[in-house]
Amino acid sequence: MSENRPTHTGLEGRIADIIMDPLEAQGYELVRVQVMGTETPTVQIMADRADGAGFTLDDCEKVSRLLSAVLDVEDPIESAWTLEVSSAGIDRPLTRTKDFNNYAGFDARIELNFPGPGNRKRFTGKLAGADAETARLVLENGETVELPRSDIRKAKLVLTDALIAFTTQPKVTN
């Protein structure tokens, strides 16, 4: 597993495997695949630009055309489905090791599949980084909890003024 790649399972994992290489070849990174609905499912793809620049409407269109063609050929869903491509947004999901590390110090909510430290499933605090196995979060009381990444159901940044300021500042290039 690369720090730049999210982990998916089931149908979402199969779709991620299909689209990952073509997406990266065009200068993008996959943030998340989510399949919603059953009768006519929506395949939601969230992506970032690999160069760190903002993900624009033009990027959405380019990625949508690319992935539509790739998924039409591979046809991972037997019924009719809809493709939706978007940026991860400011209060983005945290799916990759690099997300947890790039946003260390910012507020996040993490929900586990199974009870974790303190027999809890939901945690809110400041991100303190991650590695491939564990995400660290500093709770309001100052306690640092280590949460198994394999048990994380969902994790996302909390929208705060500090996060908005951080994500809207111009990127410095050398």
Results as ranks from 00 to 15, higher is better:
residue 37 G to F: 01
residue 135 A to P: 11
residue 30 L to Y: 03
residue 81 W to S: 10
residue 80 A to F: 10
residue 159 L to C: 05
residue 46 M to C: 12
residue 139 L to R: 06
residue 82 T to W: 07
residue 85 V to R: 08
residue 140 E to S: 14
residue 62 K to A: 15
residue 127 L to V: 01
residue 137 L to N: 05
residue 123 F to R: 07
residue 63 V to H: 03
residue 47 A to R: 09
residue 32 R to N: 12
residue 136 R to Y: 15
residue 136 R to S: 15
residue 55 F to L: 07
residue 92 R to E: 06
residue 144 T to G: 11
residue 95 T to M: 13
residue 98 K to P: 05
residue 102 N to R: 15
residue 133 E to F: 11
residue 23 L to E: 05
residue 115 P to Y: 05
residue 73 V to Y: 06
residue 107 D to N: 15
residue 87 S to G: 01
residue 134 T to C: 09
residue 57 L to S: 04
residue 82 T to H: 09
residue 76 P to A: 08
residue 155 A to P: 08
residue 140 E to W: 09
residue 60 C to V: 00
residue 150 S to M: 11
residue 42 T to P: 04
residue 124 T to K: 14
residue 56 T to Q: 05
residue 70 V to S: 04
residue 30 L to F: 02
residue 44 Q to C: 08
residue 150 S to H: 14
residue 26 Q to T: 09
residue 78 E to N: 10
residue 136 R to M: 14
residue 59 D to C: 12
residue 111 E to G: 09
residue 75 D to H: 10
residue 114 F to I: 14
residue 128 A to S: 14
residue 39 E to T: 13
residue 116 G to I: 06
residue 94 L to C: 07
residue 27 G to N: 02
residue 84 E to K: 00
residue 72 D to V: 00
residue 32 R to E: 15
residue 135 A to M: 12
residue 136 R to T: 15
residue 36 M to I: 13
residue 93 P to W: 05
residue 164 I to A: 08
residue 128 A to V: 11
residue 134 T to S: 13
residue 24 E to Q: 09
residue 35 V to N: 01
residue 130 A to C: 01
residue 125 G to P: 00
residue 27 G to E: 00
residue 141 N to W: 06
residue 29 E to I: 10
residue 154 K to E: 15
residue 30 L to S: 02
residue 117 P to K: 11
residue 28 Y to S: 01
residue 139 L to M: 05
residue 91 D to P: 04
residue 36 M to Y: 04
residue 62 K to I: 15
residue 54 G to Q: 04
residue 58 D to V: 09
residue 135 A to I: 13
residue 69 A to D: 13
residue 112 L to V: 02
residue 37 G to S: 01
residue 161 D to P: 13
residue 161 D to A: 12
residue 133 E to A: 15
residue 115 P to W: 02
residue 51 D to I: 03
residue 114 F to M: 13
residue 33 V to G: 03
residue 51 D to W: 02
residue 145 V to W: 02
residue 85 V to E: 04
residue 33 V to S: 00
residue 125 G to K: 00
residue 36 M to A: 10
